[in-house]
Design a protein around this nucleic acid. Sequence first.
DNA 1: TCGAAGCAAGAGCACTGCTCTCGTTTCTGG
DNA 2: CCAGAAACGAGAGCAGTGCTCTTGCTTCGA
Lengths: 232, 232
Amino acid sequence: MSSTARGARARARTEITAAIKDEARRQLADEGAARLSLRAVARELGMVSSALYRYFPSRDDLLTALIIDAYDSLGETAEAAHAAAADAGAVRRWSAVCEAVRTWALGHPHEYALIYGSPVPGYVAPKTTVPAASRVGLVLIGILRDAHQGPGLAVPPLAPELRPEADRMTADLAPDLPPETVAALVAAWAQLYGLIGFELFGQFKGVVEDRDPFFRHAVDRLAHGVGLGDPR
Amino acid sequence: MSSTARGARARARTEITAAIKDEARRQLADEGAARLSLRAVARELGMVSSALYRYFPSRDDLLTALIIDAYDSLGETAEAAHAAAADAGAVRRWSAVCEAVRTWALGHPHEYALIYGSPVPGYVAPKTTVPAASRVGLVLIGILRDAHQGPGLAVPPLAPELRPEADRMTADLAPDLPPETVAALVAAWAQLYGLIGFELFGQFKGVVEDRDPFFRHAVDRLAHGVGLGDPR
DNA sequence: TCGAAGCAAGAGCACTGCTCTCGTTTCTGG
DNA sequence: CCAGAAACGAGAGCAGTGCTCTTGCTTCGA
């Protein structure tokens, strides 16, 4: 069935659903997730709060929808940055993606906090979020894959005790890459978000002032850590 | 003035203040910061909610107190781990501190989320938290200082564009260390919390299963990144 | 066309943080 | 020692929250 030209009711439903998410995202950007209020969203949209429950069965479900959208928005940003740097070398592409993630985070702090900050109360992310959440990681894997097929990938060391888990991760994530690389990548992936989170959540206040070059340098070191970059 | 044997009223005040924080910490561990309710705390303590405002002028102030306590608890843990490994080499001490931080985080997930997760609504951490928040970092700096005074510290590379900021950070944090080392340390510090945060907040679910060796290895690589460890 | 399903509205419940008032207890300075 | 000041606990109350239930109206599909 086509997505346009369904019944008027169905069309209204998708429109209103989108309007709710838009308004919720606005309030999210203004006040943060904790202050997002269903009633306020409904009020702003000129409807009564109970009507909103026709579209989202609970506040958590609205948040889940926003989470998925945020993952997708971030993933799309990362993919676009990668595509824009498609002709550059692996390190440049790595840096471009990392910086795109950071820029997105700085521009959407509350959405970033929603997906990479502390999880909400008793909330557990449903499986639905997994594909959207994987997009940035897949881009990074792709960069390493390209480098591996070409000549440019050094193989980082790997602690023997990590070998079994590294093999497991490799089978799951990128069977064509060396386990050493996959283990290093997963760590770098988490570390990237450590850097961004510290900047975003104020941990660098009074410590790192000129953050652009700091981040660029850290990301460059991260690239070396996964085996990218000119062998010095 | 001695801390005991003040007036009965003052003693009661500190006792009740502590009881409030204890009960709040309990609810924090059960439900998370978002669900911490002043009324529920008061109820559990057999007092009326308004009475609680004699001790903490607002919910945010209660949270601030818990945040400082959490920083102190974590810092103390890190310091103890460092002291317990005092005789070991720099890498071992580095690992011991990092693993102590991780273990504390896994044992106090909600308190960890409180201090290193997304900040609460419009909340900005008052300056009061700074000393407590610095304790882990100071321990790590101390390890590098020791290694630097001995023979065991390699100097990591530094991007030229980061030189001014690295000099500034060095003057602030550890004037006796090379700027290259300080810059690498600050990055490693943030990256450590990326690793812990990803594990704690569920980002590793379905990706990293056997997390102890993964973390050990990542922390070991981090140590190398700041110049510690046997030159291979 | 007619019953079913979707929908908006309103009232209401139990809860929240926070304020204000009021009577009581404790402390403190003259 | 004792009067005024300060601290305190209790209670009522306000404005707000997420969520439920009922009541009519509209749209849809067989």
